[in-house]
Design a protein around this nucleic acid. Structure first.
Lengths: 345, 345
DNA sequence: TTGTACGCGTTATCAG
DNA sequence: CTGATAACGCGTACAA
């Protein structure tokens, strides 16, 4: 059995409650006894038992992480290690621990969340994704359990604290960027439409085209998985069009990589024949040939701010709903150029 | 306040202890009362409080994950999401939750582990890396706390349950593969020598050369970070040699990607001028140009088996030390070929 | 400034 | 088969 507060109390010749107060650094304890108690703790190698503390104080100093389905391709995106790092850092700063749950199916994930929450394992939860219809989010909301989402909630945006980019504006900007480069035939390759981020980006793309009075063609809008294989299918469809696009807005770097490869195989040159701009600016985007022009969305900060605002919320229940927007930034590399004039592929 | 066992007891007209037994599905309770109690639980929407249960039973049904330093480049490797998925699945099967700890420095990580362990937050720990000198491992060992490591422990291999590949053999095999292809000038690009996996792979490489009586040149052995930039530096060194290698054994796909890019910039063609084989077979390895021949090390299984064997150990303290070797497999793609005879780069 | 006593929600022991 | 009752380790009114 481990060293408890009682052992320390005995050694220091004080009551257990005094030891408890020393741990909490209560101002109502004399420096002298504090010192005495601390020495005893040191001598015995005492470490507080979090479980007991949690039970007594009804708070765990732990936050729960809800990941998307582990079978989901999204899970493999380098996005995750990075947000995780951000969250972890934000949590560490406030001495919070991390509790995770994943699962293969939505139900598994949901059960995991319920266990964390009802089981009292965590004080709050951060959702690492934002889907269009989400059981987990609904549950958390109804239960009034503290949580924040990374991304933009599909509904009740005003009532849910979230950390997000301005994906609408970002996509509008990059589309404009391509337009200003002289492109008029610009296609959009997005991921799963169940992810809110996808719809936001699509909207931004459409807005830019409309602002510039460019035609908005359905054939130019493609949705595939957030990954490689997705990109490949998309490209083939696009290039077989009568008037193939001269530029592509791709919703994710990984997909862009797939696009790049397929293009390469088809003998289409980037950026000479076709320009590409994508999102996230993960490490890989500078490793591709050519390096990708990509929107840096501050992934680390998304996580960091999410953790911080969740903890605030946990520690102060009347904290107002917040919406934190992380700045984005277009990182220009070599995948964009003025459009070709008259190419035949 | 949430629904407790007492509320259920009251509604079902039984004692709290009876409810507890029903939850544990004790065989000594009549089916009739079980049914009655279950109905009450249902009606009240009861969920057991894990914290209280942990305190009483001195076990948490949670396992702790120790990640490498978040500032470490290794952290960004696609390896992690995948092991994580494996661990998560292994844990889910046995209804264990996951508790994580990371940190920027070794000390932060160490403190995190101590808190998990002494704080009684977890029943066991899995180390997601294996370093040459590791404070955390030493601590866990001295405390006789259940843990398993993913990778090969540097010392006390016989006394530590671990899940690993046979990296020595794997590297020996791929080196032989290159030799049999006709290569004689084969270089090795490895990662951080503090990681045990690096030294294992280096050893395997050397063994193959020795077995075939090929010279073992120091200039052919390079260590860089486990990432992109590392790869680039390495290649330049290698190609500026008097007799540059015709084949490369690269210890990680990500590094190999960097190598590929640098080679491309220098106008060196893969596999025509130089062959490459690397490790891990992460998703990216088939997305590179050319697709990488890579050793699949069963990352998911590493995690899965680690979780399973840890849980076994936790549930049965006298479980013997185990060493689980996950099979590897060479996935041949397009980065290897017979060597060039007489090329001038 | 410090000690006493009780409660947090369960499990486990021991009667009955 | 079931019900009291005592832990589990700590926080915290309430007393002193």
């Amino acid at each position: 059995m481990a060293i408890t507060i009682k052992d320390v109390a005995r050694l220091a010749n004080v009551a257990p409650s005094t030891v408890s107060r020393v741990i909490a650094n209560s101002p109502r304890i004399s420096e002298k006894t504090k010192e005495k108690v601390r020495e005893a703790m040191e001598e015995l190698g005492y470490h507080p038992n979090f479980i007991a503390r949690s039970l007594a104080s009804q708070s765990t100093q732990a936050i729960g992480l809800v990941m998307p389905s582990s079978t989901d391709k999204v899970f493999q995106n380098p996005f995750f290690p990075t947000v995780l790092r951000g969250i972890s850092e934000g949590a560490n700063e406030k001495q919070y621990a991390l509790h995770m749950t994943t699962g293969k199916t939505e139900d598994e994930i949901f059960d995991g969340v319920v266990q964390m929450v009802q089981g009292g394992r965590v004080d709050g939860v951060v959702l690492l994704y934002s889907k269009v219809e989400d059981k987990v989010l609904t549950y958390l909301q109804k239960r009034e359990f503290p949580f924040v989402v990374i991304g933009k909630p599909f509904k009740h945006v005003e009532e849910i604290t979230h950390v997000d980019n301005d994906n609408f504006r970002a996509t509008k900007e990059v589309t404009e960027y391509l337009i200003n480069l002289g492109h008029e035939a610009i296609a959009f390759i997005g991921g799963d439409l169940n992810l809110v981020v996808t719809v936001e980006r699509l909207l931004g793309y459409e807005k830019a085209l409309r602002d510039f009075n460019l035609p908005l063609k359905q054939e130019y809008i493609i949705h595939e998985e957030f990954l490689r294989e997705g990109g490949q299918g998309a490209v083939k469809e696009l290039l077989s069009l009568e008037q193939p696009p001269t530029a592509l807005v791709v919703a994710d770097d990984l997909m862009a990589l797939g696009v790049l490869n397929t293009l390469d195989e088809m003998g289409v040159s980037v950026p000479d024949d076709i320009s590409i701009v994508s999102f996230n600016n993960v490490m890989l985007s500078e490793m591709s040939r050519p390096p990708l022009t990509s929107v840096d969305i501050g992934i680390f900060d998304l996580g960091f701010e999410a953790a911080k605002s969740l903890i605030q919320k946990v520690e102060n229940p009347k904290e107002p709903v917040k919406r934190i927007i992380i700045q984005h930034q277009l990182i220009k590399r070599l995948s964009c150029e003025v459009p070709c004039q008259n190419k035949n592929y």
